[in-house]
Design a protein around this nucleic acid. Structure first.
Lengths: 340, 340
DNA sequence: TTGAAAGCGCTAACAC
DNA sequence: GTGTTAGCGCTTTCAA
């Protein structure tokens, strides 16, 4: 806790104990070069003996940096937490930061009061930067952060004309390649179950779907498009509707692996064989999809790289404040699991 | 960010701008008493005009407290995130802390390296205390924190002889009252689907189940107990097994609402009517259970109060370090939804 | 009621 | 290589 517990030694005490100056101890604990090996060892022993732990508040104050980055989750995302997509991203971010000696701290915001509170917190020099996950289209938090000149990077842009720095997957390209793949396999009546269309990623994937159909000279009927919300249930319902409207459907692009799983349920309930009768391709490539029989072909997003890219952008934003925003779109990969 | 962005005013500049001393400004931003109303207003205006935001690192250093509390999630819990149980607890904790001007920060730890890193972080005076959620029996993190004399409170104890401070629900009592209720309604062949039995909460609920049966003079056969893991799938499988072993089952206590939902699936698949043929009671009282037909009777845990109790304990631990550990067990409530 | 001054524990620039 | 020193921005006595 904050109150200096008796027995919490300071850097100065370590210095005295080791018989060196404070600067030397500081150099040792920061792994700075230019310290004789013998002194370094003496200092390390003193640290050991005293059980010294640097006071991070003092370090932040003196060093003008907190070595911490906040990851903000807005309420609608909470459920994502349980999904591999999320944990993979968090893992990636945490690792990338740990590599450079920084801490990741999660913050949940649900109300505007929370947003304000967080903004105050971030502006209070407690974090060096802010990361945001799949922000809703109308959320102003990124703008507020940018206005406060806090390095900010989002995963997924809010809209086509996003300006705040972001990393995103090539949603259009991913969807296009998936649908083109289906076409090349002879599928002709291809439907899509989208994500919530107020999300840019969902829109882009729909666009990719339409592009691919146009490219193949197939016409894209509105009735082949059903809006879902990334959940399994929505996939099931959407697929049921689609089948009712177009019994001849032989291919489906789903917004996510979860949605694809729902679609699968509906297809089976309707007696369709997968992939013989209907081929299903979902975005994301997770246990659900991998365990499924048949193993689905998926559009894989490079989550690990997306996390690393976010950190890279953040660091660049910190070091070169003259650049207003940076955008990086990563390539997706089509993982073909079965002949579809 | 840490680097003092140009235009980030300090308390001193505010003081100069308002024509007062630094101490006065400090008093104003901390709502301390003993400041003339007119000066207070002058200072507030200066703060407004300069867009002053206190530097939290400096405040932590000078004030010997960080005003932040960490909530640690160990990896196996991640999936909990998606559940109302979790979000309700987090909401409650966040609110309780905000009320007293403190920040909640989440930390995910998965490896032992993470545990070490977090320990270092916490010992570095960056947080005033640590909260832990449903720690696994073998996890040593709580002990390490306690050893470092960091105020620590867990939700749910690790075992019967837990010593680190914790808040828990009366699992034994809750299970007992549920089973007694079934007995009083004439049920005679009552089974239970437990949680993972290496978790104390699961053991306690099993004990409560057995107690109630003993109390009613019914004998508790081992074959009426099936172990699950809180998931829906485990509930379904366990129920299927139980029915095979005891076709005459007329009552079930499930470890959670999710498990109960799984049990329901199995019961229906077997052609049993609920609750006419078999009554089901689950722990927790969430949307799943609430939407279900028939609406299940549940054992409700007072999540809001559990969160508040955790904060209360934490503050007490901070203020009275002479007390080693504090334990609080909260009462559960049987929510009767249908005649069972 | 308010101002002045002494730290909080550390980093970094500058001497030696 | 290593010690010394001047802050970082705030809270908190202690006087006034």
């Amino acid at each position: 806790m904050g109150t200096r517990r008796p027995g919490t030694p300071t850097l100065e005490e370590v210095a005295a104990h080791a018989g060196v100056g404070r600067g030397t101890v500081s150099r040792v604990i920061n792994n700075a070069a230019g310290v004789k090996e013998s002194t370094r060892r003496a200092v390390q022993q003193a640290i050991e003996e005293l059980g010294y732990v640097p006071n991070l508040a003092a370090r932040s104050l003196a060093g003008q940096r907190s070595n911490a980055v906040a990851l903000v989750l807005t309420e609608p995302d909470w459920r994502m937490f349980a999904e591999p997509f999320f944990s993979e991203i968090v893992r990636s971010l945490g690792d990338a930061l740990a590599d450079i000696g920084m801490q990741l701290m999660l913050t949940l915001v649900r109300s505007d009061i929370d947003r304000k509170r967080f903004l105050e917190y971030a502006r209070g020099s407690r974090v060096d930067g802010v990361l945001l996950l799949s922000v809703r289209a109308g959320d102003r938090l990124p703008d507020m952060l940018a206005e406060a000149r806090l390095p900010t990077v989002m995963l997924g842009r809010r809209s086509r004309d996003e300006y705040v720095s972001y990393v995103d997957a090539d949603n259009v390209g991913g969807a296009r390649s998936a649908v083109s793949h289906l076409v090349s396999r002879g599928r002709r009546t291809i439907a899509t179950i989208t994500g919530p269309l107020d999300m840019d990623a969902a829109q882009c994937r729909l666009r990719g779907y339409q592009d691919a159909l146009a490219l193949a000279g197939l016409d894209s009927e509105q009735s082949l498009v059903a809006e879902g919300d990334f959940t399994q249930e929505s996939g099931r319902l959407a697929m049921t509707d689609l089948l009712a409207r177009h019994p001849g459907i032989d291919g489906v692009l789903a917004a996510s692996d979860t949605t694809a799983a729902g679609a699968l349920q509906a297809l089976r309930a309707a007696g369709r064989r997968v992939p013989q009768d209907v081929a299903v391709i979902g975005f994301d490539d997770f246990p659900l999809a991998q365990r499924t029989r048949p193993r689905l072909t998926t559009v894989r997003q490079p989550l690990e790289e997306m996390g690393r890219a976010m950190i890279r952008l953040l660091l660049e934003d910190m070091e070169e404040p003259s650049v207003a925003y940076r955008h990086v779109i990563l390539r997706t990969a089509l993982v073909v699991r079965e002949s579809t």
